[in-house]
Design a protein around this nucleic acid. Structure first.
Lengths: 230, 230, 230, 230
DNA sequence: TATGAATGAGTATTCATTCAT
DNA sequence: GATGAATGAATACTCATTCAT
């Protein structure tokens, strides 16, 4: 169970706008909380703490841990303290749960990354922020279940894949803009993005942040150094 | 159905030793066929064309396509023209099929990579060969089902994971040696290897070799350029 | 949705008593409307247009179309624009809905038949009226859902069957009286009634009134001719 | 559980061909056993006593008793002493069980009727034989579950209905021929058939053969008298 | 080795019914 | 009277695994 409200502040990128840019050149950066509240208002994200939101968070976690096929609807229901039959008041099928979980996770990660990019000064800092956010999405408590987007992609019907892809694209759009703004632009930003994405996604299999010599912070720097040498 | 013998020659790296190095300085590079035959002789690899080998190839392909959990024992049996009950004369459980498939795939890929490295002159050429081989394992017909090593790792019990890891390590050993021999050695070869591995594994999700501007050959060069700038 | 009031006049047999028998020998024939109003007053029939009446009409129609077991309480509720939970303010179980629907349908058909018989002169005309009414009950808009009495009899518990049977018997009483009054009485009126009942009920499976050579009128005559040859 | 072989002789119409027609004018009438054996040989009817045949007999009986929707797959399996999962080795869905049961029942009844008609001399006797057979199909042990053809018709998808209709038509063909051969032919044989069919089907609801004044034999005669007055 | 019928535990999903609001 | 979220038992169907032949 995750308190989505407190998560945001936990990510550390979005504290507030009290950064003295009242008279500054850079426009006011939106807070993560603002962005998320807006999504909830638009009906794109579930009301925090609602049964629906708790089901999705729980499901995303279980899918990540055990895989979609090995997670039963009963597991998910038990995770939020209801009975399995009741799930179908919220979702019409198990696959819909997966799709919705992916959508929520994507929107969540996008909000975090958008805020972090907006809070960064140079394009290179922005790229570092993107890398950092994606790493945190996978490893931190920021976006629990983020890796199902990669791990369980095959479990989605193609119609559902198409729906998620639309949101996914708006997430990638942020990366594209950041790449475009880089001073010495890379030859093939699309390729770079894909290599970075793979490299980051794979950290899920080996990187354990707790008490490691290599922090998430440093890992971000290494990845930045490889793909955008200073 | 795949003829594992003919595949090897199809990979194009290991044609023969008729490369004029009879009197040369570099020791004779072993053929893939030699390496594979040796593994069969040692009982580490199934006799090609045996029912067992055909089951494993078919299973690896199906697991890659549909995922382990969504592939039924019946599917696999049907794929080689026997009935589901008969599979249990060859393997004691579905999970054993997955483990054995992973082992075969690993040995296969290792043989291909060992031969390619042996046929390369400089360390940088050797690194290119490694990248190229891993890409081919994923995309070519060289090692069908190779990506299950990543995709279906969670479907394996931890005991089985341990067994596969041992073989896996002998595969990684080749990479380690190649990294160690690089002229301007990288700061953190282990990290580099993991980033490369992730980047390559992820190509499974987006790279379609047929009729693309970007060939496997070029893709290898790009990856090499990123991780080991000349 | 059916307006039960207007239906009655649609049946065409019971328009009014303006048939000149003010001074006649035959007693005044009661209107269908009169009979139904009386039933409502006695509390045997639901107030027309009440939620309860609309639920029963809708349920009868759905049970006829899809069968009792395949009709959900949600379907019925949706049919009258309320939610499924609300149904249980009107009926204590789904089976009660079926029983009540059968009762309403029986009373309705009885009123129509009683009026038609009362408006007929000779016993043979009265028999024709009975046949005609039962056919109309099944095929016309006169008594929507009438055939559930036969089709869904097995779906009723035996206690409910007993309750419906009492009403049903008052319906059959009309037939019995008509048979008894026939000039050349049949050998075995009870058997004849049952054969007629079966023959008429089965028309539900094959007779389609719209644009057929055989009208309901003619069909009535044929059945009359078979069972009571002139 | 019914022994289909002994049933046939129990029906009393098909005793043997030792009826002295060796030198007679009428061609040798085929035995029910012959007809059924032929159907089994053609693969249209299940091997008697096979699990499949026992499942279908049992299912037909249960569907007749409790209705298709209220009969569970477990009930059927339990009826023949296997577990519910095993049913799906024989049929791919519950609906397939219903369809196959209807087909078997139809073929069975057709064979009985064909033999009875062949064993009758005059057209009127043949009509009596048809009526008698259909009554026996419903009430006797001759064709257990026959009435599902009427009672559960709505439970079948339209594709399945179409398949059963083809067989059903070959059953009706016998009736058509008999009607056509009647001396004083009826005005509208198709209508007569439908009325008879309804009348007979409905006997399922009221006629109880055991220890009744009215025997099946006499009932047949009454029905014959009504529809084909001498 | 192969067969194929049977197992039996498990799965997602349905649905009448309840009840606090 | 109506809501709608929750219940919980029941359902058809799945599938890895067994085993007598």
């Amino acid at each position: 169970m995750v308190d989505t409200t407190s998560e945001n502040s936990a990510s550390g990128h979005s504290e507030s706008r009290a950064d003295g840019n009242y008279g500054g050149g850079r426009p006011v950066a939106p807070t993560v909380s603002d962005l998320l509240a807006e999504l909830v208002a638009e009906g794109l994200l579930s009301e925090p703490d609602s049964t629906r939101a708790r089901l999705l968070t729980c499901a995303a976690g279980l899918f990540e841990q055990k895989g979609f096929a090995r997670t039963t609807v009963r597991d998910i229901a038990a995770g939020v303290g209801i009975l399995s039959g009741s799930i179908f008041h919220h979702f019409s099928s198990k696959e819909e749960i997966l799709r919705c979980a992916m959508e929520e996770v994507t929107l969540h990660a996008r909000a975090l990354m958008a805020a972090a990019v907006a809070a960064s000064d140079t394009p290179r800092e922005q790229l570092r922020a993107c890398i950092r956010c994606e790493l945190e999405a996978i490893h931190g408590e920021a976006v629990p279940g983020f890796s199902i987007l990669v791990l369980e992609w095959r479990s989605l019907s193609s119609e559902s894949q198409a729906r998620v892809l639309r949101l996914r694209d708006s997430y990638e759009e942020i990366w594209r803009k950041v790449f475009a703004a880089l001073d010495g632009p890379l030859d093939d930003p699309a390729l770079s993005r894909r290599l970075i994405q793979g490299a980051i996604a794979h950290t899920h299999n080996w990187f354990k942040p707790e008490g490691r010599a290599l922090s998430l912070e440093k890992l971000s720097d290494r990845i930045l150094a490889v793909f955008a040498p200073a």
